[in-house]
Design a binder for these strands. Sequence first.
DNA 1: ATGTCACGCTGGGCGTGA
Length: 262
Amino acid sequence: MRLVTWNVNSLKARLPRVLELLEAFRPDVLCLQETKLAAEAFPHDGLAAAGYRAVEASEGRWNGVALVVPDGVEVVDPSPELPGNPVPDEARWLEGTVGGVRVVSVYVPNGRAVDDPWYPRKLAFLAAMRDRVADLAAAGPVVVAGDYNVAPTDADVWDLAAFPPGSTHVTPAERDAVDALLAVGLRDAQRVVRPEGEAYTWWDYRGGSFHRGHGLRIDLVLASAVLGVEAVEVARELRKQNAAGDKPSDHAPVVVDLAGTA
DNA sequence: ATGTCACGCTGGGCGTGA
C-alpha cells in the first residue's frame, strides 16, 4: 500500500498540485490536511477526473481533513469522531478503513506559543489521540498520518536556536506526547527507513526557508509495527512552484510504501 | 528583515492564522 500525507494549505488553491501528485505517485490512499474549504466547495469533480474520490471532514475557512482513494476503493466506516477532542467543532480528524488498515488523517493544533491557550489544547488533543489510537491499534493495523505540528527530535529541526524558550513544536511535553503514541505499538515510518538525519517536510514561506534548508519534520506517518515500511520519500518537487506557475504548499507530501497490507 | 501565502470581507487593503 502506498500512502501519502500532505498538508496542502487550501485544497482550492492547491488542486493543480494535488492532481500532479496523484498522477506522479498514484497513491492507494492520500491523507490531506488544511483543505480550508466547506463541504459544499470540496472539489470532488476535479479528483474524479484524476480517477480518485474523497471522504472529507470540512469546517469552512479553517482546518479540514480528507482521505482520497482510487475509484473503486471503499473507505469503510469513515468517522471524524475523536473522543476527548478538546476542539470537537474543528475538522482535524478523519479515520476510515482502507485495504484492511485503519487510516487516520490528522491535523494537530499548532499551539502558537507555550503561554497561549492553544498550547494546552494542543497537548489535550495529542492525549485524546493517544487514547483513540491505543484502541485502534489493539483492534488491528493502523496508520496515523498528518501534520503533527511537533518535531519529534532535535534532528527534525534545522536550528534549535530558532526555537527560544516559549516556542512550540519542540517542547518536551509535545515530544513526550508523540512518544506516547509510538508506545501503543506504532513506528515513525520515516525513522524506520532513515534512522537519523534531515528529512524535513515543512519550510516557512518567508525568507527563502526552503532554499536555505530551514525546515522542520512535522508531517509524520505513524504505523503499526506489523506493517512493513518499504520506502519513504519526501516529494520535495511539490514544495516548488511548477512550470505552469502553480504555487506550492509550505509542506511537502510524504510518500510511504507499506507492506503487509491487504 | 516579521522578507509569504491564503482566506473572508469587500470592492482593495486589512485582520487572521500559520
